[in-house]
Amino acid sequence: MRILHYKFQVEGDLHFSFDIMEVKLAMKRYLIFLTFFLFLLNNQIALAAPQVTAQAAILIDKETGQILYQKNIHQRRAPASTTKIMTGILAIENGNLSDRVTASTKAAYEGGSSIYLSPNETLTLRELVYGLLIKSGNDAAVAIAEYIGGSVEDFAKMMNNKAREVGALDTVFKNPNGLPKEGHLTTAYDLAQIARYALHNNFFAQVVSTPKKRISWPGHSWDRILNNTNKLLTRSDIVDGVKTGYTRAAGRCLVASATKDNHQLISVVLKSADIWSDSLTLLNYGFNNYKKVQVIDKGELVHKLDINKEELGLIAAKEFNYVLSKGSSIKIKKVIDIKKDISLPIIKGEQLGKLSIYNEDNELLDRIDLISDEFVGDSSINRFWKMIASKIQIYF
Rank of each mutant, 00 (worst) to 15 (best):
M1N: 12
L4F: 12
L14I: 14
D19A: 11
V23I: 14
N42S: 14
N43K: 10
A48D: 08
P50Q: 09
A54H: 10
D61Q: 06
E63R: 12
A91M: 07
I92L: 02
L97V: 09
T102F: 04
T105F: 13
S113G: 06
S118F: 11
N120R: 14
L125S: 07
V129P: 00
L132G: 02
I134F: 06
G137C: 10
A140C: 09
A141T: 05
K157Y: 07
M159A: 07
N161E: 15
P180G: 06
P180W: 07
E182D: 15
L185A: 06
A188Y: 04
L199K: 01
F203A: 00
F203M: 01
F204D: 00
K212V: 15
R214I: 15
R235H: 13
D240P: 00
Y246T: 14
N262H: 13
L265E: 02
S279D: 06
Y290G: 01
V295E: 11
E311T: 12
K333L: 10
K334E: 15
I338L: 09
L344F: 04
G353Q: 09
K354E: 14
Y358S: 03
N359S: 09
E360N: 15
N362Y: 08
D369F: 07
E374V: 00
G377C: 00
N382C: 04
F384W: 13
Y395L: 15
